[in-house]
Each structure stands twice: as structure tokens, then as C-alpha cells.
Write a protein that binds this DNA or RNA. Structure first.
Ligand SMILES: [Mn+2]
Ligand SMILES: [Mn+2]
Ligand SMILES: [Zn+2]
Ligand SMILES: [Zn+2]
Lengths: 136, 136
DNA sequence: AGCTCACTTGCAACAGGGTTGCAGAATATT
DNA sequence: AATATTCTGCAACCCTGTTGCAAGTGAGCT
């Protein structure tokens, strides 16, 4: 609980109950969350718009990162300390077609790809869909 | 023009001007297109809903495939003959942050990944963002 | 060519996701 | 406690995508 305040403070963010709750939701549920997920978990306490703005703020500050998905965006905690300037994510995301959860596979990073002449890659995003260990 | 009819017929689809126009738009522009792109190109001729339904039909029949994107879905032609049952796509998509175009890199396929025990992968989707040859 | 039936389209209406402006509330600082 | 700054809630709005239904069209057959 004080951990949360530390994290927020560390990113120059004021401590508000909404930010604490959103952050602790990300920490408790381990998987990637959509805005809808958060609204489901916290919707009675906070306005939709506030949750949107909290996500946007967390994104900018490097607290969470986007997770691509074939049916809408999700977000997950940045494990390493990402900053406002630099997100460094080269890990793989796995979406289970059975339980629907999307998870970061933090220690599996995306293999290097030899691109043709002239391409300057900056950012990689690999989503693998299939069945996760819990569901097979 | 007769090529289009052939393709549609080959997928058990009736020939309609909307389907012909959507298909030829995909063929002419080489890059991945969103519904909005198509609406921009053909919107005066067809209703939005019809374009949505055309995309859905083409998807189901294996004429086009989804392209993941951090700001909404796009679609691109399937190069190999995909069917209603089986899409086989393991190629990389590249999105240029300068011109905004997303393209299939058909001959670059996604490198194999060694997943931990218990994961059963079925589908891979790799999006690389950066600057394309035209824009650097 | 004309008939028929199944499929396709346009329209209207709706649901969901996401954004913006602004006034009031809460936070951090003094 | 007073202040400046930031954050929240609300309302309004736009964009994307879906559904139901009636009218229109395509393809196969006579
Ligand atoms: Mn991740
Ligand atoms: Mn492709
Ligand atoms: Zn699962
Ligand atoms: Zn470019």
C-alpha cells in the first residue's frame, strides 16, 4: 500500500485513490488488462473517463505498456523501469484462446530479424495465440 | 477486371460491384487497409455497413487477413491461397512511423520461438514499427 | 428473355470505445 | 490555513463496429 505511493511518487505523480487502485489491480491480477477489465473491477468507484486518463498517464510515465491484441488494446505493467522517454520491451505476449487471458512472457524476448535494406526498426511486438498451461 | 470475378467465384461469392471495388482497392494499393481507408476510397459509392460486411466476408473466405496495429485493425490480401478453414500466415508486418503505412513482408517469416512447457501456440503475429525504405 | 429464390445492400438504430471542455474537488507546497 | 497546481466527474461528442429489416440484385433455370 505504501509501495504504491512510492511507485507513483517515483514517476512524479500525485497519489490519488484511483491511481492506487488501478495500479494495485495491475499488480494483483498478473495478466494484461483492458480498460473494460478495469472498469469492471473499479467502475463503481470511478468514472470511466478517469480510468482512461489514468491509463494514459501511466503509459506516458512508463508504468504500463500497450499489449497488442486482435480484439482491442490491453495494458500490462512494465517490469523494468521504463521512463517517459524510453520504453524497452522486447518480450513476447501470449494470448490464450481458452481462458482469454493475455500475459507477458517477460523472460522470452523476441528473436532478432534480418530486415531488408532500408528498414529501420524501432519497436517490436510479437503476439502468440494458443492455449496456455492452465487450460490445456 | 475479370480476374476479380474469378477470385470471387473461386471463393463461392457472388460478384457485386462493391466486392469488386474493395478487392481491386486491396490489389492496387499494396499496403494494409483499414475500414476507414476503404471508406475514404469508396465511401461515396457504398454504405459503411456494406464495406464492413464485405471485409467480414473476405476474412471468413480467406481472401484477406487481419493485421494487428496499435491503433486499430487493418486488413491485407492473403498471398497464398488461404481457405475458410485455414489461414497460414507467418510473415512479418512492418508499420512505418513516418508515412503511416503498414505492409506485409511476405518473404520474411516469423522466427521460431521456444516456449516454456505447457504452451500450445497456434497463431503468430509480429508487428515491427520503425521507418520504411521510402521514408528514411 | 423472363421467373424465382437466395443472397446482398442500404438505412436506421444501437452499443462500445475513446476523447474533450469545463467547473468543482483533491493534492502537495508554503 | 492559504495557495497554486493537478485531478476528477459530468456532459457532450466522435468514431468504430454491429444488428434487424425491407428493398434490391445476382445466378441458375425454363
Ligand atoms: Mn508485456
Ligand atoms: Mn500480411
Ligand atoms: Zn488459458
Ligand atoms: Zn514510410
Amino acid at each position: 500500500m505504501d509501495q504504491l505511493r512510492e511507485t507513483l511518487k517515483g514517476h512524479q505523480l500525485r497519489t490519488t485513490t484511483c491511481r492506487e487502485d488501478v495500479l494495485s489491480t495491475f499488480i494483483n491480477k498478473k495478466n494484461a488488462l483492458s480498460h473494460g477489465d478495469l472498469e469492471g473491477a473499479l467502475g463503481e468507484n470511478y468514472d470511466r473517463v478517469t480510468i482512461y486518463r489514468t491509463l494514459k498517464t501511466f503509459l506516458e510515465k512508463g508504468i504500463i505498456h500497450k499489449v497488442l491484441d486482435d480484439e482491442g488494446l490491453r495494458y500490462a505493467l512494465c517490469s523494468h523501469n521504463c521512463s517517459e522517454e524510453k520504453h524497452h520491451h522486447d518480450h513476447i505476449h501470449f494470448k490464450c484462446s481458452a481462458c482469454g487471458e493475455t500475459n507477458c512472457l517477460e523472460n522470452l524476448h523476441i528473436p532478432a530479424v534480418q530486415l531488408p535494406e532500408g528498414y529501420h526498426p524501432e519497436n517490436f511486438n510479437l503476439l502468440i495465440q494458443g492455449v496456455c498451461p492452465k487450460c490445456n
